[in-house]
């Protein structure tokens, strides 16, 4: 076996780089608690209407008792329901998703609100939106020939406006 001294040096640099990248990932994951959506929770996609959480009347934006916000939405060809929601900026928001038919993906461009919505599973994402504005919420996974048309709207308003609109902590669909 013959390993050149230059190769050895390069190997040290390589492992150093990989260590640096992995270090950054472990710090963000284990210390800051940033994880991709991974809750491994199953649901019968054919009976969403009979489920408590994803029944049509229960969808939308809910303010929890601790002031955080939970958004329950259903993905189905070709839209995300409810079609338009309003949310406050700078607030912790938990999205819960289920599909009524095939595979979908949901993304709000320029934000990290992104997850796959796999039939049979509940997807959950927790995030905050720092910038108020109108965002499209679009399907980013091929789900049929109407896939291009699958999008809904999210309006993010600044926190004061939101609090004026929702004086009680038990706000309802906005």
């Amino acid at each position: 076996m013959h390993i050149d001294p230059l190769e050895k040096k390069w190997l040290y640099i390589t492992f150093g780089m990989v260590g640096l990248f992995l270090g950054a990932i472990f710090i963000s994951a284990l210390i800051s608690g940033i994880h991709p959506p991974s809750n491994v929770e199953t649901i019968d996609s054919a009976r969403l209407h009979l489920s408590e959480e994803f029944a049509e009347d229960n969808l939308g934006v809910k303010i929890q008792s601790d002031g955080s916000i939970r958004v329950t939405m259903v993905a189905g060809r070709y839209g995300f329901f409810p079609r338009h929601i309003t949310l406050p900026a700078d607030t912790t928001i938990t999205f819960r998703w289920a599909s009524i038919d095939v595979l979908h993906g949901v993304h709000m461009p320029m934000t990290n609100m992104s997850t796959m919505v796999v039939p049979g599973y509940v997807a959950e994402v927790t995030t905050e939106f720092p910038k108020p504005g109108d965002y499209p919420m679009l399907c980013n996974e091929y789900c049929g020939t109407g896939h291009d048309f699958m999008w809904s709207k999210v309006t993010v308003v600044d926190k004061q406006t939101w609090e004026r609109q929702h004086p009680s902590s038990k706000g309802d669909e906005s």
Binding site: T14, V18, L22, I25, A29, S38
Partner: peptide
């Protein structure tokens, strides 16, 4: 970004992904 696998498994595969750059 998939809901059907847990975060620990994803992290494990993520470490392997960086090792294969070597």
């Amino acid at each position: 970004m998939d809901p059907e696998q847990g975060s620990g498994w994803k992290l494990l595969h993520g470490v392997g992904t960086f090792l294969v750059t070597v």
